[in-house]
Design a protein around this nucleic acid. Structure first.
Lengths: 256, 256
DNA sequence: GCCGATTTGTCCGTATGTATC
DNA sequence: CGATACATACGGACAAATCGG
């Protein structure tokens, strides 16, 4: 369970929105009312609300109030504000994913690999190819590179299970953040061999660089997603001062 | 210029990070130091910092401090935390985009269109097809639907220029937020006709539902992006309490 | 292992500004 | 104009994690 109060309030409000306790398209109680009802300070409530805004559950408008703009899942279930990952999809569909290690090897980053991954040239790496299945259907082909000096003792056996459980529980590495880029690329021969793509010749590629608490990027992973089962969700919020900020300013300018 | 103090502090810190005033991979000054240096309260500083964390400029670790993890643009310029839009790319490359209206029409949402767009069946809509060029190269094919009762008086002439300037400045509609979904789809005949896609038969599709301050979704736009020029960026941050939250929890679980 | 200093994380109360009605 | 509501900003208090002695 979450310890922080603002997380609890966030979950309470989210539940009330999803369950229809707050009617769709209608105004929520004012901050003042919610503070009394929930027994918290204004700052704490606002922190919970700002998360709901970021995820597209509510609109806030100065001088007016907060409006519930949650829409209960049109077609597929509607999780907001982030990537729907493989394991999330699996859990949501009551299906369990499986994984298979195609390749476990050691490599040293050459100039080309350094350029692609962001590791320094000459860095010793583990290079692992893994295939993720959902319901016996292969959906994601992963190319992962781990720094050998960080992921010490990593073996093919461990990769068959959970690499991250090993890194966190055995090596006590704490993962801090992960930078990701989504692009669309032509399918390689390997993609076509393992992913059953029909007549599509492109796929969605999520490249991520993951950092530990020492600030070192210890992992680069390229996830190649079957195009029919890839779905990224986001909510862009209007920013008061329309700088060359990126969020919605960009999105809206895009349409001019 | 931005009015809010936390926005100014955010820009100041971001500039110092990007310019190398704070060395890469090193710790930033502590909150206490920055507060004195910048002349602000702790909350205001923390608000600015949290934005930098969200965009992958810095890591924060309780008991340790803040580390600069910005990487100055490996290959393409590196804007973090959001979609790189058409106009942003254009501006960044010193190139100007152009737009062409392919179709301007009125339609009424039937069952199928209602399902796809989220408008109620029977809603009168403007349906506009527009092609966006970058440097004479067609990159994005947009299918836009606007509610006629909201976007009153919209004409093909206006669509040749900026629809949003008309909506905001003439009709005084305030845009609050926009829900977006990124998928990969097979190219249609129209895509192949207008976008010069080579031998790719798929493209990146960004579907967005945009809301005004009355909480009504007044626009649905499907942006079909040339696969070679699509790039979505994100930074996932570790959350202390590992709930069935979505951000990094999901990303990491994905790798199990 | 303990203790204290440092640093970030959470929470509260209050005051003021600004947009809406 | 006043009342209401959200937005910004400040200062203080305590908790939790880290690190060095």
């Amino acid at each position: 369970m979450p310890k922080a109060k603002y997380e609890q309030l966030y979950l309470i409000l989210k539940e009330k929105i999803e369950s229809g306790t707050y009617p769709p398209q209608e105004m929520l109680p004012s901050e003042h009312m919610l503070i009394e009802e929930l027994g918290c300070s204004r700052n704490t409530l606002r922190r919970a609300v700002s998360e709901l805004v970021r995820e597209g559950y509510v609109q806030t408008m100065q001088g007016k109030g907060m409006r519930n703009i949650f829409q209960p899942s049109k077609q597929t279930t509607f999780t907001l504000g982030t990537i729907e990952t493989f394991s999330e999809s699996a859990a949501r569909n009551q299906q369990r994913g499986a994984s298979k290690v195609l390749l476990f090897s050691s490599v040293t980053a050459d100039a080309q690999l350094a350029e692609k991954t962001g590791f320094a040239e000459g860095t010793p790496l583990f290079y692992i190819q893994r295939l993720h299945y959902l319901n016996t259907r292969p959906l994601i082909l992963n190319h992962s590179y781990f720094r050998q000096d960080v992921a010490q003792g990593l073996t093919r056996q461990i990769a068959e299970g959970s690499i991250y459980r090993y890194l966190e529980n055995e090596l006590h590495i704490s993962i801090i953040n992960s930078k990701r880029v989504v692009t669309v690329e032509k399918a390689t021969l390997l993609d076509l061999q393992y992913l059953d793509m029909g007549d599509c010749n492109c796929l969605a590629v999520v490249s991520s660089q993951t950092y530990n608490s020492d600030g070192v990027m210890f992992e680069y992973t390229q996830s190649r997603h079957h195009p029919n089962f890839f779905r990224f969700q986001d909510n862009a919020v209007r920013r008061s001062s329309a700088q060359p900020r990126t969020k919605l300013g960009g999105t809206i300018d895009e349409k001019e």
